[in-house]
Nucleic acid binder design. Structure first.
Length: 306
DNA sequence: AAGACGAAAGTGGTTGA
DNA sequence: TCAACAACTTTCGTCTT
C-alpha cells in the first residue's frame, strides 16, 4: 500500500486509518482527515486483501473521463487492422463504428462537459472512481437525450451527486451547488430526473458516511467519532433514521457524542459544518435523548463537572 | 452576552386521489 | 393537477449558563 503520508501532521501519530471506500486517510488518534479524495485506489491493490482472487491486470481500463473513452482518434484509420486476426479485427471495426457514430456535436458537448466535470470534482476533491461513475452517467444521459432543455452544467452536477451517493462518499447538495455554481434545487432536480430516467438505483445515504468529514471540520477526537457511530447505530435500530435527512441525524449524533466526551461544540458550530440548522439538530437531539435513554448519562456528566 | 430551547409560520418536495 | 403532508428552515421570544 503506497503511503504518501506516514505521520499525522497534527499529533504525530503513525496510527493512520485508511478509509478506502471514502478515499480518506484519517488519524486514529486525533481524527484529523489527512488526505481526502487523493489516493487512487485502483485495481492493483484493490484485490490485495482478497487472496482468493488472483490479481488481474489488464492494462488501462476504458475510461469515461476522456471524451473518446481513451481510445485515441486513429482507430482503423491506417491499414494495420487488416493484419489482425478476425476476432480482433471485428473488435476494431466495432470500435470504429461506435466512434464514427459519435457525431461531432455530441463529441464537442462531451468534451466541454467532461472538462466541467473534472473541474467540479477536483474542487470537491472527489476520488477518481466517482469521476468515472459520473462521466458514465453523463454519457448515458447524453445518449438518451436527457440534456436537452437543461444546462450542461446542471446535468454534470446531478451526475456527480448521483455518483457520490453511489460510491458512498456523500457530498451535500449545498457542496455540489457551491462547486458547480448551480442552484441547489436545480442540482436536486436534475439529479432526480436523470436517476429516474436512467433507472439508477440509489441507496439512501448513511449518516455514518458523513461523520469523518464533520469530525475533522470540528476538530473532534476519534473517540467522539466512534461514540457518534455507536449512537447512530442505536438510532437506526430505534428507527429514528428513516425519512429524516441523514446530515441532520449525523450532526445530532455528533453533537451528543461531543457532549458526552467533554468536547462540547455549540449547536451552531455543528449545524454550520453539517449544513443544517440548529433547530434540526435540536429536534434530532431530542429524539436521540428520548429513545436512547441518554438523559441520565448527560445528568451524570453534569454532576461530575461540579 | 452567548447559547440553548421551543413555538409559529414559511418553503420545497413527495404522495395519493 | 391539486391538496394534504412531512421534513426542514427562518425568525423570534424566553430561559439558562
Amino acid at each position: 500500500m503506497p503511503h504518501y503520508i506516514e505521520k499525522c501532521p497534527e499529533c504525530g501519530s503513525v496510527n493512520l486509518s485508511i478509509e478506502k471506500e471514502r478515499g480518506e486517510v484519517i488519524c486514529r488518534d486525533c481524527g484529523l482527515v489527512i488526505e481526502e479524495k487523493m489516493v487512487d485506489f485502483g485495481q492493483e491493490w484493490r484485490e490485495f486483501e482478497d487472496k482468493a482472487e488472483s490479481r488481474r491486470r489488464t492494462g488501462q481500463a476504458l475510461t469515461y473521463t476522456k471524451y473518446d473513452k481513451g481510445l485515441g482518434t486513429s482507430i482503423g484509420q491506417t491499414g494495420d487492422i487488416f493484419q489482425l486476426g478476425g476476432k480482433e479485427r471485428n473488435k476494431f471495426f466495432r470500435l470504429r463504428k461506435w466512434q464514427y457514430r459519435v457525431s461531432t456535436a455530441i463529441e464537442r458537448n462531451l468534451k466541454l462537459a467532461l472538462a466541467e466535470l473534472k473541474r467540479v470534482s477536483s474542487f470537491l476533491k472527489l476520488p477518481k472512481s466517482v469521476d468515472e461513475e459520473a462521466a458514465r452517467i453523463y454519457h448515458m444521459a447524453v445518449q438518451r437525450g436527457l440534456v436537452r432543455g437543461r444546462s450542461m452544467e446542471s446535468v454534470v452536477a446531478g451526475a456527480l451527486y448521483a455518483a457520490c451517493r453511489r460510491n458512498e462518499v456523500p457530498r451535500t447538495l449545498d457542496e455540489l451547488s457551491e462547486a458547480s455554481g448551480i442552484e441547489k434545487k436545480e442540482v436536486g432536480r436534475t439529479y432526480r430526473f436523470i436517476t429516474r430516467e436512467l433507472g439508477i438505483r440509489i441507496l439512501p445515504s448513511d449518516p455514518v458516511d458523513y461523520l469523518p468529514r464533520f469530525v475533522s471540520a470540528l476538530k473532534l477526537s476519534a473517540d467522539a467519532q466512534s461514540k457518534a457511530v455507536e449512537l447512530l447505530q442505536k438510532a437506526t435500530k430505534a428507527e429514528l433514521t428513516s425519512g429524516r435527512g441523514p446530515t441532520g441525524i449525523a450532526a445530532a449524533a455528533l453533537y451528543v457524542a461531543a457532549l458526552l466526551n467533554n468536547e462540547k461544540r455549540t449547536q451552531r458550530e455543528v449545524a454550520d459544518v453539517a449544513g443544517v440548522t440548529e433547530v434540526t439538530i435540536r429536534n434530532r437531539y431530542k429524539e436521540l435523548l428520548k429513545e436512547l435513554n441518554l438523559k441520565d448519562k448527560l445528568k451524570e456528566k453534569k454532576l461530575e463537572e461540579r
